[in-house]
Write a protein that binds this DNA or RNA. Sequence first.
DNA 1: TATGAATGAGAATTCATTCAT
DNA 2: CATGAATGAATTCTCATTCAT
Lengths: 201, 201, 201, 201
Amino acid sequence: MAPRNRRREILDAAAPVFGEQGYERASIDAIAALAGVSKPTVYSHFGGKEQLFRESVADSAQQQNEAALGAVRQLDLSAEGWRDSLLELGRALADCSLSPCSVFLDRMIAAEVGRDPGIFETVQTRAVRPVQEALAGRLAMLGNSGHLRIDDPIKAARQFVVLVNAELPGLTVLGTQRITAEAFDAAVTAGVETFLRAYAV
Amino acid sequence: MAPRNRRREILDAAAPVFGEQGYERASIDAIAALAGVSKPTVYSHFGGKEQLFRESVADSAQQQNEAALGAVRQLDLSAEGWRDSLLELGRALADCSLSPCSVFLDRMIAAEVGRDPGIFETVQTRAVRPVQEALAGRLAMLGNSGHLRIDDPIKAARQFVVLVNAELPGLTVLGTQRITAEAFDAAVTAGVETFLRAYAV
Amino acid sequence: MAPRNRRREILDAAAPVFGEQGYERASIDAIAALAGVSKPTVYSHFGGKEQLFRESVADSAQQQNEAALGAVRQLDLSAEGWRDSLLELGRALADCSLSPCSVFLDRMIAAEVGRDPGIFETVQTRAVRPVQEALAGRLAMLGNSGHLRIDDPIKAARQFVVLVNAELPGLTVLGTQRITAEAFDAAVTAGVETFLRAYAV
Amino acid sequence: MAPRNRRREILDAAAPVFGEQGYERASIDAIAALAGVSKPTVYSHFGGKEQLFRESVADSAQQQNEAALGAVRQLDLSAEGWRDSLLELGRALADCSLSPCSVFLDRMIAAEVGRDPGIFETVQTRAVRPVQEALAGRLAMLGNSGHLRIDDPIKAARQFVVLVNAELPGLTVLGTQRITAEAFDAAVTAGVETFLRAYAV
DNA sequence: TATGAATGAGAATTCATTCAT
DNA sequence: CATGAATGAATTCTCATTCAT
């Protein structure tokens, strides 16, 4: 009844539809139906499919950002806890990568970057870089504490992320298949261990 | 006149069209026109758009496979040469990842894996795994020679690949933008160095 | 603040929008925006697009009527002045035909008479016939004074009008293009002269 | 069965639909249905609504041209017959003006000239001017034979046409209503007589 | 086998019109 | 009264796919 936040409802419907069907196959009809509104309402709020798509990507990037940033901020820098906490951070970031939101983003930017290069920049700016920089900052602190040997914190952060995620695309068929907790843990641990072998003092 | 290899001509036309436009936007008309044949000819050879797409993906995966396998086979295992050669292999694999063929595959898989998970398996089987296994074999040999400490060769191979490619998507906007030779070299070198820090004896 | 004459404001906005875009293309949105009111206000005042259109046509016909009637009333019937004055009247009527209001009416009638024959009758009753009758009356007086040989005043009036306007549609592309004063004068004069050759005693 | 001339069939269907409904209201659906073909066939033959419209107008102008030119060519220039023949020509031209084809053209150019000024020029070039010039030629011959006093043949031709048609729009509600033969004859005769009073020697 | 011509199904988008406030 | 928000219906256009030749 209460027509509270149509915009929010439409965005929440757009993300999974775009994510599952892709930009072209996704129909405004389907998004409107899932949002429980009519097609013209979508148009009056977003202007058109392309704009809705861009806003949906930006919105998902924002959510992605917040989730990942939260994880990074919880990294324990203490001498006793940092190793376990780094593994935990690896798990959290890998979990973020498997979230519907992130799977959606990955698929969309891969598929649509040719048509609209702007979305790549959007996602980089809103989600990837902030997380990378936050993570780089933490790694630098671990460097300063003498726990890690960090020459270039941004590079190290990027490598941490790719190592942690190295096996997941293959195991989850790009996020479309479930995975056991054990397999997940093993994959993340393998990445973190290699990172530590390369960077630990 | 001589309709020698219609099939080959159509596949060669399909890859760039699918690669640039994506599955949905690519039209059989465009592919037929680029191949210099008429639409029904495409249908008589491939049955339909979906099948043509699958065969195009498989075909590109095959090419991708051959290029990458060639690079792996040239890895020099000698005591004097293996380090430089490993860096060279990193460059070659990263170069493969930026080839139109590979960019095409990445985009297609990302876009269509939801609709047809089979293509992921196709590409894994035809391109990713053979290369991974070949690379794993070489790394194992370097382990046996005492140059590297390789516990799980497949895992090491996967990590080598992700480290080598870690920076490239960001630098090239997923393969859509050119990059200077210096930037390319620096990115690859950073990956190989980290790999060596983690794995070298 | 004072919502004095909403009705008038909407009619004044409707005429140019209908005139420039045509019935179908004209949107209530555009009219409401130009009038500075909201869409439902238009509906509460006029009931719907069709009715608004009819009222707009009737309103324009009224204005057209008044302008043309004014010109006819100024015809000088004196022995010395009637010839020059008749030419002047030709100019005035031709000028009316080129007014935005008249161009609007012509376009609307042509476009919509099939859908709503009533608007033709409206315009005939409110604009065409009153002018024709007034002009017929004046021509009859010139007949009575022995200056013209008028058998059927209404017919003569109609012929006067068509002769005076004979060249204008072609020269102005149905009122959409400007025309020089010389070309205008020559066109009107040619019509009046032929009228006089046919009707002058 | 025999898919002889789709193009012709579509044009023959387009004219009445555009003529009765106007450009905007006319739907490709309706035209396709009347032509007995499917929508995409219309698109493959004409590219789009706008182009179909232009071709339809040009086609109607051509038909209009041929009918009217035929009438003009039959004008009898002999001393005994020219007066009766001129009246007959008036009837023929007036009849042309009431043909569905001509009514269509008049409505379309009036309604759409603002949106697409090109159609006005098309109709002028293909239908109006050729007829005007042919008629002007004939009137000039009657001038040379000493039957008429023709100063400017083109002007005379234009005036002949407007005089002959002066009453018809009003009587037929712009060609949408039938008219008795008597009324038609009286209207045409009135126009021709006035023309003769102005131009006969 | 190759093709020109045709089509059925479906997509984005727009707009007159109506409620709830 | 005036309005912001919402919708049902309709329209143009595209495309994969199929016959008849």
